[in-house]
Simulated assay, not measured.
Amino acid sequence: MPLIRLAEQTVFDPADGTGVLLDTIEGVYFELNPTATLILEAAIRCETYDEAVRELATRIDAGDSELREGITSLAAQLAESRLIVPSGVSP
């Protein structure tokens, strides 16, 4: 299971490096900056923090702890907006 799993009503489009999340129930979209887009893409593909951090480290100039915090922070923000399914995974 991926680190972050989108909620059923959420559509993610990472086009042009600036990701957009659409809540199809509320009809609201959220724009992500390029770094958050990379983090979300990795967290959707990867099953563990270690795997996601390894992937992100090749694209983002940050230390492992910063990348883990970025994943955790993004997941918390998206969960608060009910755009993802809470996974209960911690770093």
Rank of each mutant, 00 (worst) to 15 (best):
I60M: 01
A76V: 13
D23I: 10
L38R: 06
P14L: 04
T58I: 09
G63D: 13
V11G: 01
G19P: 07
T35K: 08
T48H: 08
L74H: 02
T18S: 14
T35M: 01
R54S: 13
A15K: 11
I44A: 02
T48D: 03
L74G: 03
I39L: 10
L78R: 00
P2G: 02
L6Y: 08
E80M: 10
L56M: 12
Y49A: 09
R82E: 13
L83T: 07
E8P: 03
L74T: 08
E8F: 13
L40K: 05
I84W: 01
E55L: 12
A15P: 02
L74K: 01
E41F: 00
G17D: 05
R45V: 11
S65I: 15
G63K: 09
L56F: 03
S87E: 05
P91I: 07
E80Q: 12
R68F: 07
I25W: 14
L3E: 04
A62F: 11
P86Y: 11
L67W: 00
G63C: 00
L40V: 09
Q9N: 15
T35C: 06
V28A: 14
S87P: 06
P86N: 04
D16V: 14
S81H: 14
A42E: 02
F30P: 08
V28R: 14
A43K: 00
C46L: 12
D16T: 14
A43V: 01
T24F: 00
Y49P: 03
G27T: 12
P2D: 02
D13R: 12
I44W: 01
L21R: 05
V89W: 05
V11H: 13
A52Q: 04
P14T: 07
I4W: 02
I25P: 01
G63I: 07
P34D: 05
I71T: 00
G88S: 07
L78Y: 09
R82S: 09
A75H: 09
P91N: 07
T58P: 00
I60Y: 02
A57S: 15
T37Q: 00
A36T: 06
A62N: 02
L56G: 00
A7T: 10
D61Y: 03
S90N: 14
G88K: 04
P86T: 06
D50L: 09
G88D: 08
N33R: 08
M1H: 13
A43Q: 03
E66I: 10
A76T: 12
V20N: 05
E80F: 15
C46S: 09
T24C: 11
V89M: 11
V20R: 12
V53T: 05
L67C: 00
T10S: 12
L3R: 01
A43Y: 03
R5L: 13
E41H: 02
S81F: 11
A57I: 03
E66A: 14
